[in-house]
Design a protein around this nucleic acid. Structure first.
Lengths: 193, 193
DNA sequence: GAAAAAATTTGACATATATCAAATAATTAT
DNA sequence: ATAATTATTTGATATATGTCAAATTTTTTC
């Protein structure tokens, strides 16, 4: 299997937003590398700056932070999604977020330096970034509304919709902290019907 | 006062993120136009597609939606911020958001078509969009955390910090819906100390 | 496959915030 | 200025969710 081949999925993802010239395809293929994480493995420790962005092929990564000694899940990421610690990655400074693998995960990664090179030399990469960020924006707004104005039960239902492919693979405690409720409450909600 | 002059502030804003060539400056100045809103005036009605993006020079705009007949404030925007209905503006479709002026507001605006022209012809505009969106990202993440894990009082304090310049100019009811609590609760929080 | 560890469920009780209703206070219009 | 409207405050009570503790179930390790 050659390099071009291993990056097929991710190139297809770019092509949802922009046209890829042969030149850019080749540059991307040279800079994007495969990586694997075992279940439970730490992908990013908050004590380090995040220098890589991961694109998931298979599996689930979780972004979380620690508050009063407890892990609070910020969000979950599945197939065809980019994962990094946004502020740390873009501004090259430490931030509060950890990333770990909820299940064994196959991903690609690109180093921030390589990404910057691509931004500097391929304007269409800037466009890709703008357009793909736009989608995430809407999700954030929906989530904010969901947290503010709905009961714990409604939030759980919203979560199931948002993560329809993967919600049943995420442990209860992690879901509870994502929803901003206690494990006990979530357990009771699940038991209801 | 010539056109270049009236767009001084907003050009300065762009220059925080990218260098502006004379050519781009001139294109921007031709496409960015001043506009005024009176206190209480509707800037965008959700029954229309949002075709303009506003950059505030002075005053406050509020983005809100209607749930069960009540206005729910999504966020407030002050000096040096862009305001539009994100999904509507970018995808040229209707969305749920209204925008109104909390106080008399001076702004600039640009039409979506003009912005697209600029994106297509000035790669640095794509970069500007990517970088300026990045900042907003962090705010969303902070807000999500603020809503999930803090009491109504803590959220109000967080709100005061986030909107330190303008929070005292926003009516109580609008703040309450922004925080996801009732007016009565917010009134009691304010009365406390 | 038994033992240990971790995750989930269940129970009793506490509390922050919501709801509904009414009283003031502050703005806006005549 | 006065009336009318709108915004804010206050009070009494209800309810969803949290907290703490223990029991059970599931998963992991040896």
């Amino acid at each position: 299997m050659n390099i071009i081949n291993t990056t097929e999925n991710i190139l297809a993802h770019f092509e949802k937003f922009i046209e890829l010239s042969e030149k850019l395809k080749s540059e991307l293929s040279q800079r994007i590398k495969p990586i694997q994480f075992k279940k439970g493995e730490l992908v990013l420790d908050a004590k380090h700056i995040c220098t890589k962005s991961y694109f998931i092929n298979k599996g689930i990564l979780r972004t979380y932070f620690i508050k009063n000694g407890k892990e609070i899940s910020e969000y979950f990421s599945g197939t065809d999604e980019w994962v990094n610690s946004p502020k740390s990655f873009m501004q090259r400074e430490k931030d509060i977020y950890y990333i770990d693998a909820i299940e064994t995960t196959e991903a690609y990664f690109i180093n921030v330096n390589d990404l910057v090179y691509l931004f500097d030399n391929f304007p269409e990469m800037e466009r890709y970034a703008r357009l793909s960020m736009g989608t995430v924006f809407g999700h954030f707004m929906e989530r904010i509304t969901s947290i503010r104005f709905t009961s714990a039960k409604e939030r759980y239902i919203h979560f199931q919709k948002t993560y329809s492919n993967i919600y049943h693979r995420i442990p209860l405690g992690m879901v509870a902290s994502y929803l901003g409720i206690t494990q006990e409450t979530l357990s009771r909600i699940r038991a209801e019907k």
